[in-house]
Design a protein around this nucleic acid. Structure first.
Lengths: 205, 205
DNA sequence: CCTATTCTCGCACAGTCGTGTTATATTCGG
DNA sequence: CCGAATATAACACGACTGTGCGAGAATAGG
């Protein structure tokens, strides 16, 4: 019978080509042809795995979310609670070239029209997932008594943390802050949110 | 002699057409033809005022910055120091349809490739101007003793305020927060940054 | 080897893009 | 009224877009 290739693996390769194009030339340069050229294939071959450009972009964004989620769940919590929170959230921020490319992909979807329904759903999942992560972290910090007192309602703390993370990320992507400046500001914020103190309980829940 | 039209006025009209297209269909739909159609002119007429698409986009973004700046400088400070800061920064955030369109324009430039040098310069001015505004506000609050104590260095407070403003703005543009939720979160943050107390000095410097 | 099935490629199509170039309208000083 | 200067319009060109389509290459079972 015929030649058999791993479709899922090929789609991941194509998605990585999309990331490279976005990171290098911006999302406006993403087209079926440019992505095929980046991956080293013909545009006809690409169309066997993605029939439309929107589908290609949506998969590329979904894969970013999946990769970041996997990295976060694979993290072993070491050190203080604050260091654990820091390590988790820094996985979503542009601290190096790879994470910068991932963040660029995620943010590119917001600026585009997003008329496509599938893209809009991916975008919605991206933001709500990130908010729920912030809410979970803040809640855990409160449960172990690590959160600075007094503090506003947990939903407010979570939304604010979410805004700080995305705001700093945006400023790095725009070239307004360097990754080092971003990390320093983020550390200063976390130090106020989760102050130093003898931890009343271990970080592992 | 020939028919004379106000070039600057025409360019402003065209820029407003750009805003409408971006707000309605996204920045990807901005082209010489779509903008000309939105403004009710032919594409040839448009080319008398903007020879290239990049120049058109850059002018549209510059005009947004100019308009927001004018609105802020025209504000009369009324009420408490915190209310003054709130009123100033809310001018830059998507609280209504008009300001949402302006914010969309400014953010659209970040996601695009921004390979064009002129666009990159406009973008840089946009972010540094916003940061300097935050730094000035924080410094004034510190000078009149309105800033919560203890507080980090003023540069840190300014960068954090900037990140919160842009993060909340991004979340509204992405449809993740409603303008009302954004305003509520922003108020909660300002209430911690500039707590209630008998003001030691009037707000007017 | 043969054949069926899958994969890959390249081209064609219609549309849009940015950008010229050319021609027509429109207007005002003389 | 007239011609000079400007504004607007219309079209042409090449390049690019997303998306189909068909031909050929590659492979695994018979």
């Amino acid at each position: 019978m015929p030649k058999i290739v791993d479709h899922e693996q090929r789609r991941r390769e194509l998605a990585e080509a999309v990331w490279r194009v976005i990171a290098r030339d911006g999302v406006a340069e993403v087209s079926m042809r440019t992505v095929a050229a980046e991956a080293g294939w013909s545009s006809g071959a690409l169309r066997h795995y993605f029939s439309t450009r929107d589908g290609l972009l949506a998969f590329a964004c979904e894969l970013v979310i999946e990769r970041v989620t996997e990295r976060i769940t694979a993290l072993r919590h070491t050190g203080t609670p604050r260091e654990a929170v820091r390590a988790i959230l820094l996985e979503t921020m542009p601290v190096d070239a790879e994470r910068r490319a991932e963040a660029s992909v995620a943010f590119a979807f917001v600026a585009l029209g997003l008329t496509d329904a599938e893209l809009a759903e991916v975008k919605r999942l991206s933001f709500t997932g990130m908010y729920e992560l912030c809410l979970r972290l803040v809640t855990e910090m409160a449960n172990i008594g690590a959160l600075a007192e007094p503090h506003p309602p947990l939903e407010t703390s979570a939304r604010r943390l979410h805004a700080v993370v995305d705001g700093l990320t945006l400023h790095v992507l725009a070239g307004h802050l360097t990754p080092a400046e971003m990390t320093a500001e983020f550390d200063a914020y976390l130090a106020e949110l989760i102050p130093d103190r003898p931890a009343p309980a271990p970080v592992h829940p």
